[in-house]
């Protein structure tokens, strides 16, 4: 398929780079510019945002339709499917989180289904949508939003702020500060050791800050890394000519597992972080 990707002198390096290039828009020199935005922090990855929001709307549409029709009577097939997913998320959340927050379970549902849908875009053969894009004049199209580090970071940072919000909400600002400074080594409160207290507090603060920042970082990089690697292997397989068919199938079967697992892990870790935010250590 490599030779079909548009240009005559296309090397495999170009092919891969083309597939990994986002469709970007940014403002440069007072004008809207497409695809010359390397290094511009104000650029927007239009393809990632488009598919991400589209899949979010698909999620809202499917589940919203079921929610609108929800009744205690005999459920339809779609209704039953949606209820199975909701019940699965609900029991997963209840296993971990025992608080009263009305946010965490719907948050987990949204994350799971949305990330699952975004990961699932990986199973569409890598050339289909970009080829269609080329036909209608879109030079770059990266169809799997979760292979864009901005998307995974965007979600994990939202989770990060929720973690901080819930920590402050359940323990107060003082509690949050205490959590950052008085753990894991409790500073001495009297006697000669008092001199060492500022150092211990500083040490705790550095340690806890790293731990706090590591949460969103690991959350997003895990999802990004898995999906990016999977996508890259799909692209490499797509360059093998006819042999790509069995290989693509085999990798796709394996990838279904990764797609589901990564969505589940992202959701579960979010719930765990939010649970930790509200619990005393």
């Amino acid at each position: 398929m490599a030779a079909e990707s548009g240009h005559e002198t296309l090397t495999s390096g170009d092919y891969i780079a083309h597939h990994l290039h986002n469709l970007q828009v940014c403002r440069a020199d007072g004008e809207w510019v497409w695809n010359h935005c390397a290094g511009n922090p104000m650029a927007l990855n239009v393809d990632s945002m488009f598919f991400s929001v589209l899949l979010g709307v698909v999620f809202i549409w499917i589940f919203g339709r079921a929610a609108k029709k929800a009744s205690a009577g005999t459920p339809g097939k779609m209704q039953a499917f949606v209820e199975i997913v909701v019940d699965f998320i609900d029991s997963s959340v209840k296993d971990t989180y025992h608080g009263k927050s009305k946010l965490i379970a719907p948050l987990a549902l949204t994350i799971f289904v949305w990330v699952f849908f975004m990961n699932l875009m990986d199973l569409i053969p890598v050339d289909w949508l970009p080829e269609v894009g080329l036909m209608i004049g879109i030079p770059y199209l990266k169809v799997v939003p979760t292979t864009d580090v901005n998307i995974t970071f965007g979600m994990s940072i939202a989770v990060f702020f929720l973690v901080i919000f819930y920590t402050v909400k359940s323990k107060g600002v003082l509690g949050f500060v205490k959590e950052l400074t008085l753990h894991p080594i409790a500073p001495p409160t009297k006697g000669a050791g008092l001199i060492a207290a500022p150092f211990i507090i500083a040490f705790n603060f550095i340690l806890e800050t790293v731990a706090l920042l590591a949460k969103p970082l690991s959350l997003s990089l895990r999802l990004f890394g898995n999906m990016f690697a999977g996508e890259l292997i799909f692209i490499l397989i797509a360059m093998l000519g006819i042999w790509q068919l069995p290989l693509h199938f085999a990798w796709a079967v394996f990838h279904v597992l990764i797609v589901t697992l990564q969505a589940f892990i992202f959701m579960m870790l979010t719930v765990v972080y939010l649970t930790l935010a509200q619990e005393e250590h």
Binding site: C26, N40, P41, A43, L44, N45, D148, N150, G154
Partner: peptide, 9 residues
């Protein structure tokens, strides 16, 4: 690169 997509997402 990290860009505005992060905020949008």
């Amino acid at each position: 690169d990290i860009n505005m997509t992060l905020l949008g997402q």
